[in-house]
């Protein structure tokens, strides 16, 4: 069983996004970038399957400019067998529909039976790409998973999904796509020797233009605005009585 793990390079999740007022875009020049945390969890799950003998090969895929190679090297250093880099000329504004079409192309080419990916990227927070991909290639779909149990004959997987009302358990027949939630596993760090080894692992580059996929934007960002957390005029209280009195006055009890 071949596993494909799409990974995305994003602004480090612990960094505050800043807007460039001139360009009306989020300013990523010199910003600290990282692999999307949900993608790290997806990589970890694929590696566990490989280590348990259930997977024949793990392949990380990412789309972007040359800097994207860093993220693929991280996946390789974590332990993925090989990487596919879909190279774009400039910072194209690729949207989930485009990404899903590109990934569909690669999955068909590789004949992968399982795709493990993050449920959302922490930059655009769309929470769409896995679902869209499953629609395009008609794979069964399990979103927001926190449990993944492959059947002994690797023909199906039992998943636990974190949904608004609790945990839903479903069985998916392969081929399937799962999108992972935070509590599925604890991703490993790449050790120094593995970072060195990753440099010699196979990394194939494919020009996006060679795939013949229409990437004209469907959505245009007209403007962006920092809306972060506005500081409030905090008032100190020091007893239950004081707190209840304040809350009563504010009329929120």
């Amino acid at each position: 069983m071949k596993i494909i793990i799409p990974v995305k390079r994003v602004l480090d999740p612990y960094t505050q996004a800043r807007v460039n007022k001139q360009t009306q875009q989020v300013d990523l020049t010199n910003a600290k970038m990282a692999m999307n945390p949900f993608c790290e969890i997806a990589v970890e799950e694929a590696l566990t399957l490989k280590e348990s003998g259930s997977a024949s090969e793990t392949i990380a895929v990412s789309i972007g400019t040359d800097k994207t190679v860093d993220t693929l090297r991280t996946a390789l250093a974590m332990g993925v067998d090989r990487a596919i880099f879909i190279k774009t000329d400039s910072e194209l504004d690729l949207q989930p529909l485009h990404v899903a079409k590109i990934l569909a192309n690669i999955i068909k080419r590789e004949e992968a039976e399982l795709v493990i990916m993050g449920k959302q990227a922490v930059d655009n927070d769309n929470n769409q790409t896995g679902q869209m991909l499953s629609g395009l290639i008609d794979y069964s779909l399990g979103t927001f998973i926190s449990k993944f149990d492959l059947s002994d004959d690797a023909s199906s997987v039992e998943i636990g999904r974190e949904i608004d009302s609790g945990i839903e358990t479903r069985k998916l027949n392969l081929p399937a796509i799962v999108t992972v939630d935070l509590r599925l596993n604890e991703p490993r760090y790449a050790s120094l020797p593995n970072i060195m080894k990753a440099r010699s692992k196979p990394l194939e580059t494919i020009e996006l233009s060679s795939l013949g996929i229409d990437t004209s934007p469907r959505i245009k960002i007209l403007s962006v605005e920092e809306s972060g957390t506005k500081d409030r005029a905090s008032k100190q209280v020091s007893s239950a009585e004081e707190l209840f009195t304040e809350l009563n006055q504010m009329g929120v009890l």
Binding site: P96, Q128, M132, G135, L141
Partner: peptide, 23 residues
């Protein structure tokens, strides 16, 4: 927006060749 709709709507979008808008 909910896990119910976020599960289904993007897949509908793909079937219709539409880019959905979240949240």
């Amino acid at each position: 927006s909910s896990t119910f709709s976020k599960n289904i709507l993007p897949r509908v979008g793909a079937l219709l060749d539409v880019q959905p808008i979240s949240d």
